[in-house]
Design a protein around this nucleic acid. Structure first.
Lengths: 227, 227
DNA sequence: AGGCGCCCTTAAGAAAGGCTTAAGAACTCC
DNA sequence: GGAGTTCTTAAGCCTTTCTTAAGGGCGCCT
C-alpha cells in the first residue's frame, strides 16, 4: 500500500440527498461515517476517535451548535467544520463561539471544502528548547503549562496531568519513536504497567484526533511527520 | 476537563406553563434549575454558585424585584436578567435600579433571550495601565483594586478583603495558573493552610459567577482565557 | 492463509483532589 | 463592651483522575 491511511471523518448531516453526496465526495480522501441526526452524531463523536468532523448547523431535534457545545463540554477537542445554509455574520459568530474551528456556507465549492479540511487536519510540532513543546493540530495548539488544548479562536479543552505528560514527552522530539517504557520513566510510578500508556494514547486520540499519535507496531508510539 | 462546561442558570418563574418551557428552551446551552417561587429562588441564589439568573418580575408572595434587591444586599453579584409581562419604562427602570443587569418583556423571542444571556455571561479581561487587570462579566466589572463589582448602571457589590486579594492575584495575570501556595504568599498569614484558598474561591464563585475562576485539577486556579 | 502477538477498547475499582458546609476565633465598628 | 462581620480550620462528601485487567480485533510473519 503506497497510500497513507485515510483520516476518520464524522459527517453529521440530516439532508438525505446532501449527506450521501458529501460523503461520496470525501470518500477518496477520508473514511467517512455519516450520522443523520444530532443525537447519533453526538454519541459517535463522544465514543470514538475522529480526525475531523463536519457538522450541519440546521439539524432537527438537536441543533448542530448544541452538538458542538456538548462535545466541547465533554472534553473533545477534535477539529470541527460547521456547515450552514445561512451565511449571516451572527450565525457564524455563534458557531465559532460554540467551539467550531471553521465555517462554510452552502452551497460550497468541493475544492474549498477539501482545502479547509486539509488545513484543519494538518499537524506540525515545534520543539521548545526548555523541553516543553507547543504541538499544533490544524487550528489547535497545546499549551503544556496550563495543560490546555486551545484553538485560534480562544476555545480551550483541558487534558488531565497524565494525558499531558504523554503528549508532551512525545512532542518533545517529533519523529522519534518512543517505547512504552521510555514514556513511563520519570513521570509515572515505578510500579506502573507499560499498558498504562496504551490507555492514555487512546484518551488523547479520542480527545484530540485519531492520528495525533502514530503507532509503530512492535516498538511504541511516535508523534509528528513520519517522513 | 474541562473548559466549556455548561453554565449554571437559575430560573425563577411561577407560571407552570412558561417556567418549564423556558427551562427546556435553555437546557441545551445551560444547566437550568427552575424555582417556582421567590422564596425558593432567593434561597438557591444565596446558597449556591450560579453563572446567571433569569427572574420573573410578577411573582406571588415575594416579588421578583424584591428577590433581586435581597440578593444584591447580601453581596451576590451574579448577572440577572429580569422578565416581565409589562413593558412600560417605569418598571424597566425599577428592575434595573434594584440591581438587574438586563430586562426583557414577554412575549419574547427565544433567539433574543439566548443572545442577551450570552452577552451577560461573556467574560473578558482588560489589562490596566497600572499592571492590575479588570475582569468583566456582561455589564459587570470587577475592580480588584477597590474590592468592588460595579455595573454599568452604577450598582456596586463589595467583596471582603481576602476575597479581593485572591481575585486580584488571579486577575493580575489572566491565563496563568496559580498554585494555592502562590496565592498565599505575601498576602496571607504564614501559618495559613493552602485550603484557605479553596474557601475563598468558593465565596467568589457564589458571589459573582460559578465560572469566573477555573480549577486546574492537581495544580491550582486560573482566571480568564489566555487569548 | 493461518497462527501468533500486539494493540485497541472498555469498564470498573481505587486513589486523589476539590467542594461545601459549619462552627469557633478574630477582628471591626459602634 | 457588644453585635455583627470576616477569617480560618477541618471534616465529610462528591467528582475527577488514575490504574488495572480482560476480551476482541487487527497486523505481521511464516
Amino acid at each position: 500500500m503506497t497510500t497513507a491511511e485515510r483520516l476518520a471523518l464524522l459527517l453529521i448531516e440530516d439532508d438525505p440527498v446532501l449527506g450521501p453526496l458529501i460523503a461520496e465526495l470525501l470518500e477518496p480522501d477520508y473514511a467517512v461515517r455519516l450520522a443523520a441526526n444530532g443525537q447519533e452524531g453526538l454519541h459517535l463523536g463522544l465514543t470514538q476517535p475522529w480526525d475531523v468532523m463536519v457538522i450541519d448547523r440546521g439539524l432537527p431535534v438537536m441543533d448542530g451548535v448544541s452538538v458542538i457545545a456538548a462535545l466541547r463540554s465533554k472534553g473533545v477537542a477534535t477539529p470541527i467544520l460547521i456547515l450552514t445554509a445561512l451565511g449571516d455574520t451572527d450565525q457564524k459568530v455563534q458557531g465559532l463561539d460554540a467551539g467550531a474551528n471553521d465555517y462554510m456556507t452552502k452551497p460550497f465549492d468541493a475544492g474549498e471544502l477539501a482545502a479547509r479540511l486539509r488545513a484543519l487536519t494538518r499537524t506540525y510540532s515545534t520543539p521548545d528548547d526548555g523541553g516543553a513543546a507547543l504541538v499544533g493540530i490544524g487550528t489547535w495548539e497545546l499549551d503544556p503549562a496550563s495543560r490546555a488544548v486551545r484553538s485560534v479562536y480562544g476555545h480551550t479543552v483541558s487534558l488531565t496531568a497524565k494525558e499531558a505528560e504523554v503528549l508532551a514527552a512525545l512532542a518533545a522530539e517529533p519523529g522519534r519513536v518512543f517505547t512504552r517504557d521510555e514514556l513511563l520513566t520519570g513521570h509515572f510510578h515505578p510500579t506502573d504497567q507499560p499498558g498504562v500508556i496504551d490507555t492514555y494514547v487512546h484518551h488523547l486520540r479520542r480527545k484530540i484526533s485519531r492520528t495525533v499519535i502514530r503507532t509503530v507496531h512492535g516498538v511504541g508510539y511516535q508523534i509528528g511527520d513520519p517522513t
